[in-house]
Amino acid sequence: MITILKKLGSPKWFYHFSHKLTPWIAFFSITVLFTGMIWGLLFAPEDYLQGQSFRIFYVHVPTAFLAQSIYIAMAIFSFISLVWRIKLTEMLSKSCATIGISYTFIALVTGSLWGAPTWGTWWIWDARLTSMLLLFFLYLGVIALHSNFENRQTAAKAAGILAIIGVVNIPIIKLSVNWWNTLHQPATLKFTQASSITVDMLIPFLICFTGFSLFAAWMIILKTQNEILIRESKTKWLKEAIKNHAI
């Protein structure tokens, strides 16, 4: 099994495969994302409790959810590359970091923008937003490790170990943040689940969700291709590809 994994995981195969795939992913992610957003903005019904500001739901919740799953994917990639020493998964885990931290940042900003009209303040120490902030710090740690080593291999390994520890810590952080929230109960309106999601709200949400995930996949592929260009620059197949402009 390992040999197939190694062959399948060769950067050369991945580069050519993803090179053919990118136009499709690009097209689909942009169209799906825009239909979702326009649907959410124009056609979805307003929420009886929060009015129009509920439309931020279609951006905040997908990005918050994807930020966490991208971190988990990054940890899985690092685990594979540390245990079976496959180079491709090392690069995949590095490229997950940038899109992951951008989604966390979007989730944080939209969270506070959504909260502002309902609470009157920009930031509230509520369980979900705080664990999102901590996820942001976890991402910062991984990116800092990736960029602080001269040797890219040791950098990827060190960041991989931190990603694995981080993923183990995410449930623990969620648990302790929830407990901390109940202990010092700050008086807030629990805004996320307050209003029930009707069907015609669910469809734009699902479209937005797929749009964001396709976009994330697209970014990860682009970033991995760049990483392959850097790390495989000495190999023959890459030199030929550059020569006859197949890049």
Partner: peptide
Amino acid sequence: LLLLPLYIPVLIL
């Protein structure tokens, strides 16, 4: 930068 996010559950508890 690496350790503080991992220390937070201990601090909270």
